[in-house]
Computed example of a mutant assay.
Amino acid sequence: MEGTTGVVYKSRAWYRGFDGRRRRMERWGRSRAASQRALTTALQDASVSGVGRLSAQDTLEEAVRQWLEDLEQLVRMGERSPGTVQTYRWQWKRNVSPSLGGLRLGEITTPVVDRFLVDLHERVGSATSRTARAVISGAMGRGRA
């Protein structure tokens, strides 16, 4: 691969994540050895962090996405109702995501969530705010796993 300052080398490998899915990882470097070192480091980071591990830098959107995937698996196992997942997904898209979805997990504090829930309660009612709280709580609990 040609770069602006010469040749750039690419190393790639397949790996299987903690969720059992195969993924391709690629890294580049100014030399073959540099690209291989970068790939090795990335593979080690992936094996340590694992799929589903979230940090303060991840968004609430990512936490909710993973939490809903977990719930869908419980539906397939017969342990949750499909309607439950539909309700939570709708609540996320309609009310929570527009207000909080872009926040990083480290930015989500009790006062931020409380302010959001009070406003939601005043606008649309207690049942909606309770369901929104369940979505936020479930996703935040998933993020600490």
Rank of each mutant, 00 (worst) to 15 (best):
L68F: 09
G106K: 08
R115C: 01
W92E: 05
R80C: 11
G83E: 04
Q86G: 09
G29L: 00
G6I: 02
T84L: 01
P98D: 03
R123G: 03
M1R: 13
Y88S: 03
G17E: 15
R16N: 04
S49I: 14
T40G: 12
H121N: 15
R23Q: 12
E61V: 04
L71W: 11
R133Q: 09
E69K: 15
R37S: 09
Y88M: 02
D19I: 01
M25K: 05
E72M: 11
L71C: 15
G20I: 00
W92G: 00
P82T: 02
W92R: 00
S137M: 09
R130V: 05
G138F: 02
G143T: 13
R53T: 09
L105K: 06
R89A: 10
L117C: 09
S49Q: 03
L54Q: 00
Y15D: 00
F18R: 05
R27W: 10
L120G: 08
D45R: 14
G17P: 03
L68I: 15
R22E: 09
Q86E: 15
Q57P: 04
L54W: 02
D70A: 15
Q86I: 01
Q36Y: 13
L54N: 00
R142K: 08
G52A: 11
L54G: 01
R94G: 06
A139W: 06
G102R: 15
R12W: 08
R104F: 13
M25I: 11
L100W: 03
R12F: 07
P111I: 11
G78V: 07
A63Q: 02
P111E: 07
G83R: 10
G20R: 05
G20Q: 05
D119E: 08
E61N: 12
L71I: 02
T84K: 10
I136E: 04
R22F: 02
V8G: 01
R76M: 07
R142G: 10
E62H: 09
V96D: 10
R144S: 10
W90Q: 06
Y9L: 12
L100T: 02
S126A: 15
R65Q: 10
D114P: 08
S11F: 03
S81T: 09
S49W: 09
V8L: 12
G102K: 12
G52D: 00
G141T: 14
G52P: 02
M1N: 00
L54S: 04
T109R: 14
P98H: 14
V8M: 11
A139V: 14
